[in-house]
């Protein structure tokens, strides 16, 4: 019967569509960091964000650990504030002393935020283990970056025009 054949082919069609969706989901799109997982929020101020955009990635040694959620100007002092979403997988991992810099992948590639983990004073390390500060209520005590905290040590994006300008200025003063 012709309708039998049609039904089988429609089944095949649907299966093909599902396979294509799976390909897109698993191999093409980065589903892991697509906002589906748990995250925590960090803030940072930069003098100049260059070409950084919302959804740019945050990397530690090349490993993506989060994304830029939002970029806006602080109303009071007109300095760009960048809001980051860091995967909860990296909770209590990066010390308070970590620094951020805006980097470029390749010569013309996208800009991203590089997170350089800082260090922890040995006495803090002891207090984490003994007093379990990071699990107690007051997160301010915790020597790790936690929800809502601000990173103060930031390095702005390199702006090509500034560099060239500086170079010419130096040449001129010689």
């Amino acid at each position: 019967m012709t309708s039998r054949k049609a039904e089988i082919l429609v089944g095949f069609f649907v299966a093909l569509a599902i396979a294509a969706t799976l390909l897109l989901a698993l191999k093409v799109a980065n589903q892991g960091m697509a906002g589906s997982g748990e995250t925590y929020k960090l803030n940072a101020r930069f003098d100049n964000i260059g070409g950084l955009k919302a959804r740019s990635s945050v990397k530690v040694g090349g490993v993506v650990v989060g994304r830029v959620e939002r970029i806006y100007l602080d109303g009071a002092d007109l300095i760009p504030v960048v809001e980051l979403q860091i995967s909860s997988e990296y909770k209590n991992t990066f010390p308070d002393t970590s620094s951020l810099s805006i980097l470029t992948s390749g010569l013309l590639g996208e800009q991203f935020i590089g997170l350089q983990p800082g260090f922890i004073f040995p006495e803090d390390l002891v207090s984490i283990e003994e007093d379990k500060v990071c699990e107690s209520a007051d997160l301010r005590q915790c020597p790790y970056l936690t929800e809502g905290e601000e990173i103060f040590d930031t390095k702005s994006a390199l702006v090509l025009e500034d560099l060239i300008g500086q170079f010419l200025f130096n040449q001129g003063s010689e």
């Binding site: 897109l24 989901a25 191999k27 093409v28 799109a29 980065n30 589903q31 697509a34 906002g35 589906s36 959804r55 990635s57 993506v64 996208e110």
Partner: peptide
Amino acid sequence: YWSIMQSTVEWDKDV
């Protein structure tokens, strides 16, 4: 080819 694609393409925004 695949990994840069993966880090750029987003499920909810693009797909």
